[in-house]
């Protein structure tokens, strides 16, 4: 597996590939959205505008399937940003990858040493494979940002914060009460459930996309013979990427609706 190009800048370990990919993903999403709304028209929308409107209606469909659309209108933008960001992020790693390989330590980017290929890393690798004389470490510069747990968990963290903030402010009583229902003894279980929701929300996305990329790099190792399998797997990965973007958005809306809905009202 490839290493991440991490440099140490002012005490922070900065993963350059993640920074790059986040910027690329955001730019693509933003440019796509801007192109779509460039010539906005009420009566004669262009192709891209139609596409984006279809996406908006799709997200509205997701929201209305989990909560009242009147309440959910405020989350359409959030859902659109999530689904577009994750969809683009998931697909970015599929068409190609950029990997640099290093056989000796001491490479620098922006005047900083790449931590993943420093002397320690080579020493560690040497310990793992003591028989090999020619050691190489591959550093991946281009990959899906969502194939990194820190990014997926970051997205899940945003949703986690939004969900619980909304629960605490908009639905305070019912929100806190829900931790002690149906019996107060359920509190620890509810707490675990809350955090496991947060964990699975991020890890599901990371696992799916990361696994796709791992299999792609494994298939690439087989050489020319792998092309049919690679094509099939890339097609499947497009499908997985779409599904995961949808699932992530869906779960976001489900969690939000759970947090803002007053369950006590329904029992009456």
């Amino acid at each position: 597996m490839h290493e991440a190009p991490i440099i140490n800048l002012g005490g922070f370990n900065i993963d350059l590939s993640i920074v790059t990919m986040l910027i690329v993903t955001s730019l693509i999403v933003f440019i796509l959205a801007r192109l779509a709304v460039r010539n906005l028209s009420v009566e004669n929308p262009g192709k891209l505008q139609n596409f984006l409107e279809w996406a908006v209606e799709f997200v509205q469909g997701i929201i209305s399937s989990t909560m009242d659309l009147k309440k959910g209108k405020a989350f359409v933008s959030l859902g659109m940003t999530i689904i577009m960001f994750i969809f683009v992020g998931n697909l970015l790693g599929l068409p190609f990858g950029i990997v640099t390989e290093y056989s000796e330590p001491g490479h620098k980017v922006f005047g900083q040493e790449i931590v993943s290929v420093n002397a320690d890393a080579f020493a560690e690798l040497h310990d793992k494979k003591p028989n090999e004389e020619h050691l190489e470490i591959g550093v991946a510069w281009w990959k899906s940002p969502t194939a990194d747990a820190s990014v997926s968990m970051g997205l899940a963290l945003i949703i986690f914060v939004i969900v619980h903030f909304l629960g605490m402010t908009k639905n305070t009583k019912a929100y806190f009460k829900s931790y002690f229902e149906p019996f107060p003894i359920f509190f620890p279980i509810k707490l675990i459930e809350t955090f496991s929701n947060f964990l699975t929300h991020g890890m599901r996305l990371y696992g799916n996309i990361f696994a796709g990329e791992v299999l792609i790099s494994v298939l690439l190792g087989l050489g020319v013979a792998s092309i049919p399998a690679l094509m099939a797997w890339q097609a499947f990965s497009i499908f997985i990427g779409t599904i995961q973007a949808f699932v992530f958005t869906m779960l976001t809306m489900v969690y939000i609706s759970h947090a803002i809905e007053n369950h006590a009202e329904e029992h009456h």
């Binding site: 993963d15 999403v29 709304v37 906005l40 933008s77 659109m80 970051g154």
Partner: peptide, 30 residues
């Protein structure tokens, strides 16, 4: 890598604000 998480937060929030202001608001109004 927690720094990547922070970058993700920043990137996502900026993207959300920009998209909301320059893309979704006009689109929704249309």
């Amino acid at each position: 890598n927690w720094e990547s998480t922070v970058f993700t937060l920043i990137a996502f929030i900026i993207l959300y604000i920009l998209l909301n202001k320059y893309a979704f608001k006009p689109l929704f109004s249309v």
